[in-house]
Amino acid sequence: MRPGMAPKGGDVVRRHRFSTRLWHWTNAVTLLVMLMSGLMIFNAHPRLYWGEYGANYDAPWLKISSAQAGAGGGEFGYLQIGKVRLTTTGVLGLWKDQDGRLQRRAFPYWVTIPSRYSLAGARIWHLAFAWVLAVGLLLYLLWSLGNRHLQRDIHITRAEWRPSHIWHDIRDHARLRFPSGAAALKYNVLQKLAYAGVLFGLLPLIILTGLAMSPGTDAWFPLAAELFGGRQSARSVHFLCAFALVAFFLVHMAMVVLAGPFNEVRSMITGRYRLPPDRPASEDGMMGQEA
């Protein structure tokens, strides 16, 4: 970028701060470990309940298991949510392990840490990385408040909250029409909603529901479980948050690929980002509306 001039399409600019890049990659590794070790912990009791208690004699709202089909139909794995049962043989409930042996655990070896069944091992991973997740999030939020990243880049303005603005942004996304030139330096409202939702919604919620499952924490901080209607409800919310984060990850990946993976990944590693080329003003729908 030439000094003293406003950035324009094609320029390489500094985009992500060091604190954002550091937290992004620490968090990426941490969340992957948390998810995969969490799925192994789930395998120890692959049933979810609402309320304070829940064990084998109580009715789960979600269950992953295996069963015998009637009249010589063979064994099958299934995921049951409420009364709906989906056959998931090969993936959930009944699958072959790395040695070709049939296993009846919920999640298969290729998505769990450790890859072979070990509740104790998974807990060691999960509960150590939980500190990295919680302390990392806290430091990042404080740091980003200090350097005004949150106020400048994540804060959603009154104008952006307007339904017409959000609708416009949804239409732009649906047509894969991404901001051009210097406009790409700012997050659009859907991006802001997604990032704010993860930073202030999903991540705090998954940490809180994690704490709620600890009997030690429940003694001095009973609200952690009671906010959700009990420990088993908190466990269910914890699981749902994990899959909401997986959904965020999938959309995040899709957007990176669509927006230019090399440029996007480079900007999150080195901080340097090449602005997409400018579009003629007449083509830019945003201009007419915002001006």
């Binding site: 912990i41 789930f42 120890a44 009791h45 049933r47 304070e52 208690y53 829940g54 064990a55 084998n56 509740l119 807990r123 499952m213 009997p215 429940d218 420990r231 088993q232 466990r235």
Partner: peptide, 12 residues
């Protein structure tokens, strides 16, 4: 009291 098993289930 609530009994919490390391496996994830609880019983009161």
């Amino acid at each position: 009291t609530r009994h919490d098993c390391v496996e994830g289930w609880s019983a009161i």
